[in-house]
Write a protein that binds this DNA or RNA. Structure first.
Lengths: 133, 133
DNA sequence: GTGTTTGCAAAGTGTTTGCAATTTA
DNA sequence: TAAATTGCAAACACTTTGCAAACAC
């Protein structure tokens, strides 16, 4: 993702009106390759860029983008949520000291010997977090 | 773990004084095989059993037990922490609807193709969560 | 114009902490 | 008696929500 009109199109496809705030957040999130952000960090970036988006709107937008499949929420600790702009199948290193995530490409890791899903349910997703310190 | 004197010994080995509260929680946690509990649930159980342990003490004790290697903390969502009495190497199914965890024994799952830890850090732990619904 | 979105401030949730009173060794 | 532990209530961090004003179509 890169240009303004692509952000516009991406929002329209998701059924989200391209408001000033959503376009601003799209720019920060998708302009320069894959990112892992928290709401707090993203909000700070809007401030730094003079974008004026409230924290509540950052939260709402991150969740709307996640529902629309533009982001993926990653759970690492109970402290805060991370949102990943890489929505493909992949896993993560988590640097405990820095609180930072890094992708492990899906091709690198294979999970063998996974049992069948218990009766009555389907596997929705498999999260692998490799904690390093 | 089963008997009172084993709980006593377990606490002493961990350098924790065997107080009434810690013994009560040991009983709930370790008396009947593996469990996955939240602080809230464990506190409710103390109430139901007339054990009078404050919620603050439940939190403190869960963390002390985790530091002592008697429990393992599992992160599933940002909502709350789970504590697992099974401290061996294994992974989990997470039933999203019920908010319940179930062990997948370590022997079943193998992770292949794991990249080396990035320079300067070591792998502390690998968490695999299979989300089902 | 009509329905959607935003921003604020307040409320909510799960967790941690300060400290006096209690308990353990 | 000295040190560790507990319980309360207040503080905390992050997140969500209610609602009036602003905006998109």
């Amino acid at each position: 993702m890169r240009t303004y009109s692509q952000f516009l199109e991406q929002l329209r496809s998701a059924g989200l009106r391209p408001t000033r705030q959503r376009l601003a957040l799209s720019k920060l999130l998708f302009e320069n390759g894959d990112r892992h952000v928290t709401a707090e960090v993203l909000h700070a970036e809007t401030q730094a860029a003079n974008m004026r988006v409230s924290l509540a709107t950052v939260y709402n937008t991150l969740h709307q983008f996640t529902s629309a499949g533009l982001l993926r929420e990653i759970v690492i600790g109970t402290a805060r949520s991370y949102f990943d702009t890489n929505t493909s199948d992949h896993h993560h290193f988590y640097f405990e000291k820095a609180g930072v995530l890094e992708d492990i490409e899906g091709d690198d890791i294979r999970i063998e010997g996974l049992p069948d899903a218990p009766a009555g349910v389907d596997i929705k997703r498999i999260d692998v977090v490799v904690r390093v310190a």
